[in-house]
Amino acid sequence: MPIELIREKYAGAINTVEIGKSSSPNALKIGGQTGLPFLFDEGKMPNAPIIAYEILDCPPDDWPENLKESYGRVVKNPAKWAKACVDNFGAQLLCVRLESMHPDKGRRNVEASIATLKAILSLSAVPMIVLGTGDDERDNEIMPRVSQALKGENCLLGVATQNNYKTLAATCLADGHSIIADSPIDINIAKQVNILISDMGYDAKRIVMHPTTTSLGYGMEYVYSIMERGRLAAFIGDRMLAMPFIVFVGDEAWKTKEAKEFGKVQGINWEITTAVSLIQAGADIIVMRHPDAAKSVKRYIDWMMGKQ
């Protein structure tokens, strides 16, 4: 007897978010799905998941050697580093982490970092994600300035959390950027942050969710189930969970001893496997660090999308 596969059809869709100047040929769209990843018989996936290359606004001194060496000397200059990602590795999207302004990492002044961002923009014409330092107080000082300096670029700025979202939401609203809503592997808080941000008059359709993830080997099943639950709710009509996902795979993978301490190949494979797992969970933007890992994952995405 032939086996009949059960196909789910959903009424809802994930929001489509555009990043980058809409006049630019390099502007990107993410989201828009009407079904779980790559299940093309159940729903559409109009936009492929996108890899963002993560760079810092300063040399990545804390990164493991086997990761740093993949970029060579350019890591000393963020603008050249960004250009290498685009020119040598085909990056379509950059993610700049403003680490140098962190109070514990030198507290560089905001003008210097803005100059770095401008230099990156002038050398690389791809859209940009910009992350603060992760220190709430410092981010509330610097992000409005950074946002204003990037006005018109339609960047994706992060991150807004349940306890610190007002400054970033207001500044993204004023300067026309999209925003990352961050939650600690908790679907209830993810939904709440989206509501809090939209209550400020910010268009919920411009929010991208960071559900907080993990690396391979550190509770991936739980993260997967949280992301899947959010997606399924969105597909049956929960508009406060219908946002695309961003995941910071490079950051998660290269924190682990498995990636750092067992040679270059294992580190790359760790990042690849983490990325692929999260793409299957529904990730729309995958922020990665090692160019070899990023290239492999890009091939995987192209191959999966080719089945459409």
């Binding site: 679907i187 209830n188 808080i189 939904k191 709440q192 509501i195 809090l196 709710a233 508009r239 406060m240």
Partner: peptide, 15 residues
């Protein structure tokens, strides 16, 4: 039937 969040009444009405 719906995912909880602290503002669940408002979340429902934004559906």
């Amino acid at each position: 039937k719906n995912i909880y969040c602290d503002s669940f009444l408002e979340a429902y009405r934004k559906k």
